[in-house]
């Protein structure tokens, strides 16, 4: 008993003290969250600014910049292009990512770990380098500035994320289930399609959403690979921001932001995406 300093404390306020300490540990959490949110909130707020500037706080609120975006052929073209690209990228990367994530997460063959590193490597190489390598390759095959080139670039960028989330799902698979399907007469392909894929669905859905969001926001590689004709929304923002700060950019950015927020909310509700990242 004497070696326990507990008795020396005033017994009265111990509960209050514990609460105070818990509140104190929340302070850094709140501060860091504020840091993460600050630029995003500022973008959203300034998009409703009535004046043609970025003065804080805004002098009035209006939707004029959104009206301007939806009245601009350039922005509408970019939005349409970005969406079309995402629609072409997502199904392909989901198939690739599902196969790859399954192989890496539930596979049982020599070289599985090395393969996992290979699949994730596009994430580890700087975007500017991936872009440069693809640009050079596309130049040599005459595809530079083509839609196929940008499509390929987006597949390369989104693939590792897709693989990762599917691999988490695949690793949680009970290996007895595909075996049960085989012993019930299913071929390997049938087993994969009727048992393995349905059981990996949360990871596959998460991969699809991640792929869509990343494709919609990708810029580092796209800037190098994209030709003059096909500017995605982020590429147009990239060019616009270098010239001067336009409030229309804030409006477009807020639209992109909205897509991300909705995506995260949907993911967290439906499949508890926190398990996958």
């Amino acid at each position: 008993m004497p070696d326990r300093p507990v008795s020396a404390r005033p017994p009265l306020s111990s509960a209050g003290r514990a609460r105070a300490r818990r509140a104190l540990t929340l302070v850094p959490v709140v501060l860091v969250c504020a840091f993460l949110l600050l630029p995003l909130l500022v973008v959203a707020l300034s998009s409703f600014n009535a004046a043609n500037n970025f003065r804080f706080p805004p002098s009035g609120l209006s939707l004029r910049w959104y009206a301007e975006v939806f009245g601009s052929a350039q922005w509408l073209d970019a939005l349409g292009y970005s969406l079309r690209l995402a629609v072409l990228v997502v199904p392909v990367v989901v198939v690739l990512g599902t196969l790859g994530g399954y192989a890496v997460g539930a596979g049982n063959f020599p070289g599985r770990r090395a393969l996992g590193l290979l699949f994730l490597s596009p994430m580890a190489v700087p975007g500017v380098m991936v872009g440069l390598a693809l640009l050079y390759q596309l130049q040599r095959t005459g595809l530079v500035g083509s839609a196929q080139g940008l499509w390929l670039a987006h597949l390369v960028v989104t693939f590792p994320f897709c693989v990762r989330v599917v691999a988490v799902s695949a690793a949680a698979l009970d290996p007895a289930l595909p075996r049960a399907a085989r012993s019930l007469g299913a071929s390997p392909l049938r087993t994969f399609l009727t048992v393995t894929v349905p059981l990996m669905r949360p990871g596959i859905v998460a991969g699809a959403f991640l792929g869509a969001v990343i494709s919609l926001g990708e810029v580092a590689v796209s800037v190098l690979v994209a030709g003059a004709g096909e500017a995605t929304v982020p590429v147009r923002i990239y060019s616009a921001v270098q010239v001067q700060l336009e409030p229309t950019v804030a409006a477009v950015s807020t639209l992109l932001l909205l897509v991300s927020v909705v995506t995260i909310a949907v993911l967290d509700r439906t499949i508890h995406v926190s398990r996958f990242l």
């Binding site: 009970d174 075996r179 049960a180 012993s183 019930l184």
Partner: peptide
């Protein structure tokens, strides 16, 4: 395995969680 016509019952049962009992039985 799928051409052997052996019926295997697992220690963990390995019932397909995404199928009803009927669908599990119909699988084979």
């Amino acid at each position: 395995p799928n051409r052997r016509e052996t019926g295997l019952v697992f220690q963990s049962y390995a019932l397909f969680p995404h199928m009803t009992v009927r669908r599990n039985l119909e699988y084979g």
